[in-house]
Computed example of a mutant assay.
Amino acid sequence: MAAETSDPNPCGPVLARWCARWLPNASRPVAVAYSAGADSTALLLAAHERWPGRVIALHVHHGLQAAADGFEAVARALCERLGVPFTVLRVQAAHAPGQSPEDAARVHRYAALARAAQAQGAACVLLGQHADDQAETLMLALSRGAGLPGLAAMAPCFERHGVVFGRPLLDLPAAALRNWLLAQGQAFVDDPSNTDTRFTRNRIRALLLPAWERCFPGFRPMLARSARHAAQAQTLMDDLARIDLAQTGEPPTIQALQALSRERQANLLRHWLRRSAGVAASAAQMDELLDQVADNTTRGHRIRIKVAHGFVLRVGDRLGFAAPDDRGPATRPI
């Protein structure tokens, strides 16, 4: 049993603000992705307080480490005490060639959470990522030379697999969550893989965040503000891409593309590839594709540029995207 204190859960106010914007009239159950870590524990408690009797906990068991069974036991114990329905989602997070284990685990995790939320009629799935996670994501994007989508970091609300996901804690630092839980005497787990500095994100957490805190105390809200600015700018870029696609057609005709500036061509093509095929071209791939579009002045000119797992091709007077198992290129949004 957690110790009783008068300190309010710091998640409560930010959860209320998030709901006011993104979930103002929810009448269905609300799911929490509950790992038993500090962030999701604080979020589960705040959600249970806000929606008593309407919260469900979804616990993803990757089976990737020996401690996973212990995480499940801690999660199950709290849910039993609260009377919160608890569902364990066991996923096989094997990664494909060229895919990192972290990316594979994330893909499988979101798919499993979405299936469970739909099966249980949840209005959304709340995630426990906080201000430190947002700062790490932005620093990771900078280290990779990311464009605006990467610099926008994590969105407070998004849709995947037909399910709404929310991140209400992006303005809260990790220390605020942990300190509150410790004051309450509330048990939570520390994932040992989070200290493995073979992973870039963990090196950022262990080395860069403390250095930034020493140089720029209270830097997290500033990085979060930069991420919001990037997200706003990306929204405008997407609006422009949709306007240009209306002129070029979708998939875009090559001649209409050539009438645009190189920068607008790149913006349109990134938007089209992301929307129609769910892929993103690297900077080198995009430069090569733009060069090929510019050089395409004869009927017999051929385009075949590797992008992600497939190819951008010329199909008549248009561009198309073909995956390796496609019978032909995609000529309409997938």
Rank of each mutant, 00 (worst) to 15 (best):
D171H: 10
P29I: 08
A146L: 07
T297A: 11
G278C: 06
L182W: 00
R205C: 04
F188A: 06
H309R: 12
G162L: 04
R332L: 14
L260C: 06
I334T: 14
E250C: 14
D326C: 01
Q65P: 06
V125K: 00
A256P: 01
F321T: 07
S100C: 11
W22M: 06
T87E: 15
F188T: 01
V315F: 10
R304L: 08
H309E: 14
D291M: 11
V74H: 04
R81V: 12
E4G: 10
V189F: 07
L148Y: 01
A73C: 11
V88A: 07
S226F: 15
S193F: 08
H130C: 02
R21M: 05
R220M: 10
Q258C: 06
T253H: 04
Q247R: 15
K306V: 07
D103A: 15
S276F: 02
A2C: 13
M1L: 03
D287P: 04
H48C: 13
R302N: 01
C11A: 15
Q129W: 05
R50Y: 08
I254Y: 07
T41C: 09
D190N: 09
P10R: 07
D39V: 10
A123W: 05
G121N: 08
C19S: 12
A277C: 12
H108S: 14
A2M: 14
G278E: 10
T248A: 13
A153L: 03
A233F: 12
G37H: 01
S35C: 08
P221Y: 05
I243S: 11
A241F: 04
S261V: 02
V307N: 08
D191W: 04
P324M: 04
R262C: 05
R314E: 00
L245E: 13
A224Q: 04
M1D: 13
P8H: 03
A123C: 07
V315G: 08
R242D: 00
A155D: 13
R198I: 05
W272C: 02
I334Y: 15
R264P: 06
Q232C: 00
R50H: 10
A46I: 12
A16T: 15
A73F: 11
V293W: 12
A3L: 10
A105E: 14
A187G: 05
A135M: 05
V312E: 08
Q184C: 04
D103W: 15
R228E: 13
V91R: 14
L268V: 11
D103C: 15
P252N: 03
G70T: 10
Y34P: 01
T87S: 09
T200I: 05
V163N: 06
R90M: 07
A104R: 00
H161T: 05
V32C: 00
P24H: 05
D191L: 06
R228Y: 06
L58Q: 02
T195N: 09
L313R: 13
